[in-house]
């Protein structure tokens, strides 16, 4: 099992699946479960096909050295996005992702559309559910492909491991969703986003560096050094940002309409 592929894939997928679950629940409750679940299933199928096509193209046609350079740089860019958002939320410069508020907001939007036949598949419900799951899942698909193909020496094993991480997250989120019967507000989304951001930037730096010709000391163990270094940098950044976050909240109480 390639743990370096399973863990980032699991954490990233959990965050995205929680967000997708909120929309699927809203559509299910307000329109009907048929449209909601069919939309989600169609999106999951589309994502599976995308992973299969791009995953196999990467496995069979791109040499691992080239892959690590390209994937490394893209992972750094991608990871910095996650890390930046998480740090802005921790510092108070951006509102925390509130699944309960999003759920209520969407619920009232859809209720305002009027009564819908509960037995028939509704086009709007299907498309909304499909679009949400597809968009949230695209990031998961990207992480599964990149981590899977670059994490180990055998790209196929890596892809399976990363896909296993995503599948595990899917099962956990769905089971929790069924148990709670509502949006998952207890999952520490920002903490997960922060961890995934750190992991993406760490692996991206390591693989991108290798692709550029950097020989990291202690081989793969240096990943831990990089992770610790980025962790320290993020704490310093947080210390620098917090006063700005407090100042913004004093000026605009209840700051952060932007939850994206």
């Amino acid at each position: 099992m390639v743990w370096s592929a399973v863990l980032p894939s699991f954490f990233a997928s959990t965050v995205e699946f929680v967000e997708a679950l909120t929309i699927v629940l809203v559509i299910g409750v307000t329109i009907n479960w048929k449209s909601s679940l069919l939309g989600a299933a169609a999106a999951a199928l589309t994502l599976g096909v995308l992973v299969l096509i791009f995953g196999s193209a990467i496995v069979f046609f791109i040499p691992i050295e080239v892959l690590r350079l390209v994937v490394g740089i893209i992972l750094v860019l991608f990871g910095l996005q996650w890390l930046k958002k998480a740090l802005l939320r921790y510092s108070g410069l951006k509102a925390l992702h509130d699944e309960a508020a999003i759920y209520e907001e969407r619920l009232s939007e859809l209720k305002a559309r009027g009564e819908i036949d509960a037995g028939k598949c509704n086009g709007f419900g299907f498309l909304t559910s499909f679009k949400s799951v597809l968009l949230e899942g695209l990031e998961v698909a990207f992480i599964v492909i990149t981590f899977g193909a670059s994490a180990g020496t055998h790209k196929v094993d890596g892809l399976w491991a990363a896909a296993f991480g995503a599948l595990l997250a899917f099962v956990v989120v769905v089971l929790l969703g069924v148990a709670v019967r509502g949006p998952l507000t207890k999952i520490p989304e920002n903490t997960l986003k922060y961890i995934v951001g750190l992991m993406l930037v760490t692996f991206g730096t390591f693989w991108g560096g290798e692709g550029l010709g950097i020989a990291w000391p202690f081989a793969d163990l240096f990943l831990l050094v990089l992770l610790a270094a980025y962790f320290v940098v993020s704490l310093l950044i947080l210390r620098w940002l917090k006063p700005y976050g407090r100042a913004q909240q004093r000026l605009k109480p209840g700051v952060g309409g932007n939850r994206s």
Binding site: I74, L77, F78, Q81, K84
Partner: peptide, 8 residues
């Protein structure tokens, strides 16, 4: 999707 920030 991949970056979203020109400074980065």
């Amino acid at each position: 999707f991949f970056c979203g920030d020109w400074r980065v």
